[in-house]
Design a protein around this nucleic acid. Structure first.
Length: 876
RNA sequence: GCCCGCGUGGUGGAAUGGUAGACACAGGGGACUUAAAAUCCCCAGGCCGAAAGGCCGUGCCGGUUCGAGUCCGGCCGCGGGUACCA
């Protein structure tokens, strides 16, 4: 970081004293002024429109990083802009405070997750406040506050009553050495992060939210989210994954016990006549039945159950099958028998856990067929196409998978020879199959129910009790919150013992059944932290309410007008929140208008930074702090791999601390700096260079405006008018930039306007008016400096509350316009013409231009394109 | 693997299908100064040229268009997500 310090600027005479910019003094002064005036307190107002700005709340890791500064500064620009445009603004802040890092910290260095978390919150609040954010701190809460998670438990009970929560078995990552459940993040290359042994899949009974019941609604409603980025809507659409297909059964030839059929779902019923095998999941009931008296299959299934549970791991694993020896009959031909394989790539969770394979039209099936020597039969080929470009898969070509709605030639189809592949072919096949009594068309979704159980301590306890006689009994609402115990019944909670401390807690775990009063056990699973963040936006509307929300406040403040956060939340957090809003509405905690809680969404890019990585003896990555690396080596000489760009995260040790910048140059410099240059939606690689230059610019603005405040020069009509034009152009451009998240472009315009102001020969009055506008336009980005400038210029009250300036349309256009002239698309000349000159006249001037004549070299133009106000293109 | 993005000077980046490189950073030159800092002014995509000007140029290959950084197809590279990281 720069060695340059504002206080080291030497005083040199009265002029220098007057123009000295001391961020520290200015910022402290105006933060006190804002506090005293209470201007950021959100209050319901009858005569102002409301505006709710929300940035995704932070996880209290202990230090703010540049990503936070970027996120909260953007939100603050919007919040301050809306305050200036006369809105009643809600701009709250809280803490997403449950989660694994607190337990990891306790594991690594003792202490208690609660103390660690609240300590971090205090630290981060202390680092955040100097930024001068326009936050209503009176609404602050942490999700680990019992007042918050108690209300979350009440929501859980309401959902339970409405049938929106249920229990079922699901697989988790199990570490067989540490005897504990692992998060996906704790599984590295299929191995436990601490034990280093291969993890296994294990089934546990867990709680689920019925988000899949809302699949269609969550999908359909995406269309209405016009102010969401298209890419987020698309990602959610793909995630929900609606598909149309055929569900039908193959009859088993010699199935064991009662197994006489295999139910299959396919999105490609048109390829049914190209089927060559049936595959079932290792977790399919038939596979489980068969492994009982087939040791080899049992071993195969056991092998499949090793490894991680992530979709990525499953998809990337080598595709393997096991021939069960059983066969099924093809539904259209009793004599046609297909072999049944157990295959590791079939998920029990999706469809029916069984598929048929058509190798000719699916690359994965083709590879499987070649591996196990199964027949390949082409169902359709290209309708047209050049000679010899199509090698049928059975002759060694790749699987033929044409794009949707391409017309293809069916050889073994259902609806004539030439037909479209894709949706039409699927519908035709479904119709044919239904008419012939083979299954029925169904719509399925990829979206699975949301498993919320976590076998961990630092989370919101699930408020139910297990009773031997009554079964699963909800805790009574009057007993909420079910509070996390601080210790293990007299002894400190010990995270060095694997497993969940709640499981072994003697007094907390054992309780009376809320229904019959007999001895019972509390549920020791806690909730996924995504639950905490799925409704915090609603809680901010009434953080002190005795119920999860207070309707009159929810009615007033919802929806969030502008939500801002990282693109990494594009799917899970945003989808879960949309589900929660619906469920809360059903339970009477949100008005109907809030079922889509975020009117507008902006996804900012991440702040990335180099990471310094070595590998340990097991080949797992180890990360190092920048200060431990010199010339690409550690102190002991180990070479370090430098990975140029990765999301800043504590675990990767690549977090840059913004506190240094704030201390050296002030909050306004930090704010201006993170907003300038990079477009907000794009990832930005962090470099320290530039913060000092930003400070110099702000000091320059301070100096220029201070001089203007003392200026007494007389009016100068033409200069005054020119400056007024610049001013209105700046108002227009900066306002547009702020409203469209073009902060970097807005700042570029402010540089331009500042330069124009500095060079202007206008009179004092015109300059003062322009300087006041400059202070206002800068105020969302550099609020402290702007207050100071506003006050120096004699502005009324606080600039934060001054009405946003409005551009005069009449001053935004010029009378003449510069037109480039192209010959065959290459720029050859430039002319300046009156704005409204007609095309023929422009054409004439263009053609007679010396450079154009030279370039034409006597050739006759074939065509002349004149785009008024834009360009002239002469085509030869 | 699959889904979604992104790729422009030395650097960050600008550009409703219409003059590619605005605005900055770093750099070079100059003014002021005994000197430095600070400040102010000027230069600056690459190549050729004294200049005028010319050619090339937005990851790569191809296409649409009078005109493509922008739209379409195919690659390559990087990033995010992939349901227990938050």
């Amino acid at each position: 970081m720069g060695a340059y310090h504002p206080l080291e600027i030497e005083e040199q005479g009265a002029e220098r004293v007057m123009s000295r910019y001391s961020a520290a003094d200015i910022e402290a002064k105006w933060q006190v002024a804002w506090n005293e005036a209470g201007i950021f307190r959100a209050e319901r107002s009858q005569d102002k429109p409301k505006y709710y700005v929300l940035e995704m709340f932070p996880y209290p890791s202990g230090r703010i990083h540049m990503g936070h500064v970027r996120n909260y500064t953007m939100g603050d620009v919007i919040a301050r802009y809306r305050l200036a445009t006369g809105h009643s603004v809600l701009h709250p802040m809280g803490w997403d405070a449950f989660g694994m890092p607190a337990e990891n910290a306790a594991m690594a260095s003792g202490g208690h997750p609660k103390d660690w978390t609240y300590g971090n919150i205090a630290d981060m609040r202390g680092q955040m406040k100097p930024l001068g954010l326009s936050i209503d701190w009176s609404r602050e809460f942490a999700t680990c506050d019992p007042e918050y998670y108690g209300q979350q438990q009440a929501l859980f009970l309401d959902f339970l009553e409405k049938g929106l929560v249920y229990r079922k078995n699901a697989v988790v990552n199990w570490d067989p050495v540490d005897m504990t459940v692992l998060a996906n993040e704790q599984v590295i290359d299929g191995k436990g992060w601490r034990s280093g042994v291969e993890v296994e899949k294990r089934e546990l009974t867990q709680w689920f939210f019925k988000i899949s019941e809302f699949s269609e609604d969550l999908l359909e409603a995406l269309d209405g989210l016009e102010n969401w980025p298209a890419k987020v809507r698309l990602m959610q659409e793909n995630w929900i994954g609606r598909s149309r297909g055929l569900q039908f059964a193959f009859s088993l030839v010699d199935g064991p016990d009662g197994h006489d059929r295999i139910e299959v779902y396919t999105t490609r019923p048109d390829t049914l006549r190209g089927a060559s095998f049936v595959g079932i999941s290792p977790d399919h009931p038939l596979a489980k039945r068969l492994e009982r008296d087939n040791a080899e299959l049992a071993a195969f299934n056991a092998e499949c159950r090793k490894g991680a549970t992530t979709e990525e791991a499953l998809e990337k694993a080598e595709k393997k099958g096991f021939d069960t020896g059983l066969t099924v009959r093809h539904p259209f031909d009793n004599d046609w028998e297909l072999p049944v394989y157990v295959a590791n790539f079939i998920l029990m969770d999706y469809g029916t856990g069984a598929i048929f394979g058509c190798p000719a039209h699916d690359q994965r099936d083709l590879e499987f067929a070649r591996k196990y020597d199964l027949p390949v039969a082409t169902v359709f080929g290209p309708a047209t196409g050049e000679e010899g470009t199509f090698i049928p898969p059975e002759e060694g070509g790749p699987a033929y998978v044409p794009p949707k709605s391409e017309t293809v030639n069916y050889i073994r189809g259902f609806a004539g020879q030439q037909a479209q592949s894709g949706d039409e072919a699927v519908e035709a096949a479904v119709d044919f199959c239904e008419a012939n009594g083979v299954g029925q068309g169904v719509t399925k979704y990829r979206l699975r129910d949301w498993g919320l159980s976590r076998q961990r301590y630092w989370g919101c306890p699930i408020p139910v009790v297990h009773c031997e006689t009554c079964g699963v009994v909800p805790e009574k609402k009057e007993n909420l919150p079910v509070e996390l115990p601080y210790d293990e019944g007299g002894t400190p909670i010990d995270f060095s013992i694997p497993g969940n401390p709640l499981d072994r807690h003697p007094t907390w775990r054992d309780c009376a059944c809320p229904s019959c009063g007999a001895d019972a056990r509390r549920e020791t699973d806690t909730m996924d932290t995504f639950v905490d963040s799925s409704w915090y936006f609603a809680r901010f509307t009434a953080p002190d309410a005795e119920t999860p929300t207070r309707m009159e406040d929810a009615e007033y403040w919802m929806n969030v007008d502008q939500y801002i956060g990282g693109i990494e939340h594009a799917i899970l957090h945003l989808l879960y929140s949309r589900f929660f809003a619906r469920a809360m509405h059903i339970c009477g905690h949100l008005p109907e208008k809030a079922i889509e809680p975020f009117d507008a969404l902006f996804t900012q890019g991440m702040v990335t930074h180099e990471i310094y990585q070595t590998k340990d003896d097991k080949g797992r990555p180890v990360y190092h702090l920048p200060e431990d690396v010199t010339d690409g080596k550690l102190a002991d000489g180990t070479p370090v791999q430098i990975i140029p760009s990765a999301k800043m995260s504590k675990s990767k040790k690549n977090v840059v601390d913004p506190v240094n910048i704030i201390e050296a140059f002030g909050a306004d410099t930090a704010r201006w700096f993170v907003l300038s240059d990079s477009p907000p939606e794009r990832d930005v690689e962090w470099t320290a260079a530039g913060a000092e230059a930003t400070y110099k610019h702000l000091a320059r603005v301070y100096r220029i405006v201070s001089e203007i405040a003392e200026d007494t020069s007389p009016a100068n009509a033409s200069e005054d008018e020119a400056l007024a034009k610049d001013m209105h152009r700046a108002i227009h451009d900066v306002t547009g930039g702020v409203e469209s998240f073009g902060f970097n472009a807005a700042i570029a315009k402010l540089y331009g306007f500042t330069n124009a102001l500095a060079r202007s020969g206008a009179g004092a009055e015109a300059k003062k008016a322009a300087a006041k506008v400059l202070a206002q336009l800068m105020s969302p980005m550099t609020p402290h400096l702007s207050e100071e400038l506003w006050s120096v210029l004699g502005g009324e009250g606080l600039v934060a509350q001054a009405p946003w300036p409005v551009a005069d349309e009449a001053l935004l256009t010029d009378d003449s316009v510069t037109l480039p002239i192209q010959v065959n698309g290459k720029r050859r000349a430039e002319i300046s013409v009156p704005k409204d000159m007609d095309k023929a006249e422009v054409e004439k001037i263009a053609l007679s231009h010396e450079a154009v004549v030279r370039s034409l070299d006597g050739a006759q133009p074939k065509k002349i394109i004149v785009v008024p106000g834009r360009i002239v293109n002469v085509v030869v």
